[in-house]
Design a protein around this nucleic acid. Structure first.
Lengths: 190, 190
DNA sequence: AGAATTCCAGAACATTCGTTCTAAAATAAT
DNA sequence: ATTATTTTAGAACGAATGTTCTGGAATTCT
């Protein structure tokens, strides 16, 4: 009866996500999205809804990929090695100088918009859970001191990504970031 | 010959700063500023220039106050106590849930706009210098271990403000922030 | 008093914004 | 072939954007 969609919604969503990721929500116009997604205006509205709804889906998409990344680090290695690789990845994996979308969004929108805050907070909770689980295992294996609290450490670790990204934006000095990452990991182990 | 200005430019600049601080640059319209500063449009353009120039002046104003705050903590007490009070102040001094303007701006504009990045980076450098000086004194007084590098610690400390503010935005849990601050300070001392 | 400057209120400007709509071409199933 | 739906390009919309301008009232100096 009907014509099929000529594009892959997930793939085009990724393009929108990358653009929001680069420019932020407010600085990205609908025209920018039309150009970048290579879709007609109407197709965007039909498929994703308005700009706000589109952004929410981008956030969800980003959260899913990010969490998948985290969990991928957890297998095959000792818990502390997993934690270390997650932190190192934050320093190394810089997609062309793009700051983490979740961190960016936390500061641009989450303080004013409860809908957005909820999405970002849930992603944060999930990430912190992964880290906490790793740290609890590490504690059992005496890889971190007995007096440390895995929950607090996990929160601190997750929050530290914001630190690393801010310093990356301001100074773009990779060695500085590595020294900071060293300190962050040392603070967990000792 | 001429009429005097009927308002105090510094005082009205502070109002603009507070509004940018709350909403961010892009989400603040010129109309918002007219309402908040209680000034005529023309008076704003005559006194401060356009929106971008006004924002730059707000940033400078904020930087100056922030640095003054930091230096105020340095007198009369031991260097480590000064560092501690600066960190604690970041947790306690939350102006009605407003995230640090420098951190906010780092993520909203600094990655795209070099003019803004320069202002934020200079403020960061100045703050880090203050911290570094304190940490060097603390090291001489054996308040921190000999193997630690004050420069790296100062960078880490400054960056940690971004951590604390992000978690404040997302969770608004004061006790969580205090536990994180404890860990941050412990990581310096041991 | 008179000249100079700044104030205010608001109109006016051209852009840009997000969004909706029109209309024709393309494709898929019946 | 017919029907149904999605595609495309682009026009159109009202609202909001940043900015400039007009005009007149208010104030300060000589």
């Amino acid at each position: 009866m009907a014509r099929n969609k000529a594009f892959d919604p997930e793939e085009r969503l990724a393009k929108a996500r990358d653009l929001f990721w680069e420019k932020g929500y407010n600085a990205t116009s609908m025209q920018d999205l039309v150009d970048e997604m290579q879709l007609n205006r109407a197709s965007i509205y039909d498929t994703y809804g308005d700009k706000y709804a589109l952004f929410q889906q981008c956030l969800q998409n980003y959260a899913k990929e990010k969490l998948f990344d985290y969990k991928q680090c957890c297998d095959k290695v000792s818990p502390m090695t997993a934690v270390e690789s997650i932190v190192r990845r934050a320093v190394t994996n810089k997609k062309e100088g793009k700051t983490c979308l979740m961190v960016k969004t936390s500061f641009e929108l989450a303080s004013m918009d409860d809908g957005i805050k909820m999405i970002v907070r849930e992603q944060a909770k999930a990430s912190i859970s992964v880290l906490q689980e790793l740290l609890e295992k590490a504690k059992q294996m005496n890889e971190i001191p007995a007096e440390k609290d895995p929950a607090t450490l996990a929160q601190f670790l997750y929050a530290s990504f914001s630190s690393l990204w801010m310093m990356d934006v301001l100074f773009g000095d990779k060695e500085m970031l590595e020294r900071m990452a060293d300190h962050i990991l040392d603070s967990i182990r000792h």
